[in-house]
Amino acid sequence: MPASPRSATSGSRVSATTAVPAWFSEALATPYQRHDLEVEGARIAYRTWGKVGDPVVVLVHGGAAHAGWWDHVAPFLATSHRVVALDLSGHGDSDWRRAYDLSLFAREVVAVAEAETVGGTGPAEMMPAVIGHSMGGFVTLTAAREHGARLSGACAIDSPVQQMSPETRAWKESGRHVPGNKVYPSWEAVVGRFRTLPPDDASLPYVREHVAAASVHEVEGGWTWKFDPHVFLSAQMEPDDVAETDCPTALVRGERGMATTDITTTVAARLGGHVPVTVIPDAGHHIMLDQPVALISALQALVGEWFRR
């Protein structure tokens, strides 16, 4: 199942003129392993950092994103954890499906988590934890609701429950009745069109460039995005979908993000009320793109607490 080790910098085309701090370069230089796992008829691609047998932490990307959004975060959690970042079906290097829903995505996450946990040498009671951003937070909360007894913890990062994910809203507002990704004539042309949704000029350019470079692939006639636009048809979560879980649950939001105070208060109440909420100052919706160091610190503290018990 595992492929040969590969550095996270493979395929990255970060501009030579972009000022890149040492911590980011060192994170991208940290080797990871690529894997594939079949889940309900689809090949799910994922990557791992850290030692086999350590407690497993699974990182889940947002809508239209991919595992590479975590390349600069995962190595900082891998000093004492087996860190997994997957491409949900319809995203990144994973297979596309005829239809998608949050419960299906949650089963993909749990299958990958348990594949890595079972393969380790740690105690059986060391269950995996899941952390998800935006739509990936919807997936994480769904996994906690439906599979919480099999998890050590779950955290949703700036997930705007009661609203459409920003990616879904943008797609619906585009008026495209037959989803399809536009093909661009060159790699430079498609990467030049990369935008976060909602737009945020605060994204660090070296992080944005790395993420953009891994968001595209070559097809007949040019280059296009890796994601299947059909994922947007069922990527919404309502407050009634949130329920108390059998695992500790936490929320992280950006100060300028989409998971506003009223949303996190509602979600925390639905989860049972005793839910820590961490606010990352001066962060927008895409916290790993504009305040990654603060996010890393928050997640290190969170997983440390989950696995301390």
Rank of each mutant, 00 (worst) to 15 (best):
M1C: 09
A3R: 13
S4P: 00
S7E: 09
T9S: 12
S12M: 10
V14F: 00
S15W: 00
S15P: 01
T17Q: 11
P21D: 06
H35E: 10
H35W: 13
A45N: 11
Y46L: 12
G50I: 03
H61L: 08
A67S: 15
W69Y: 10
P75D: 03
L77I: 04
S80I: 01
R82V: 09
V83K: 03
G92N: 11
D95M: 09
W96C: 00
R98D: 15
A99I: 03
D101H: 14
D101Q: 04
L102P: 10
S103H: 13
S103K: 13
L104S: 14
V112N: 05
E114Y: 04
E116W: 01
G119T: 01
P123Q: 11
E125I: 00
S134G: 14
M135R: 11
G136M: 05
G137E: 02
L141K: 04
A144Q: 06
L151A: 02
I157N: 03
Q163Y: 11
S165K: 02
E167A: 15
E167C: 04
R169Y: 06
A170K: 10
G175R: 08
V178R: 14
P179N: 04
G180C: 01
Y184F: 15
E188H: 09
V190T: 02
V191F: 02
R193T: 12
R195P: 01
T196Y: 08
T196L: 15
P199I: 00
P205H: 04
V211H: 15
A212K: 05
A213P: 05
A214Y: 13
S215P: 03
V216R: 00
V216P: 02
H217T: 07
E218Q: 15
V219S: 03
W223H: 09
K226N: 06
D228Y: 05
L233W: 03
L233F: 08
D241P: 07
D241R: 01
C247Y: 09
T249G: 01
T249Y: 01
A250K: 01
L251H: 07
E255Q: 14
A259Y: 10
I263A: 09
V267Q: 05
A269K: 15
R270G: 07
G273Q: 08
H274E: 14
V275W: 01
T278M: 04
I280W: 06
P281V: 10
M288T: 11
L289E: 10
L289M: 15
D290E: 06
Q291H: 06
P292M: 02
P292G: 11
L302Y: 04
E305K: 13
F307E: 10
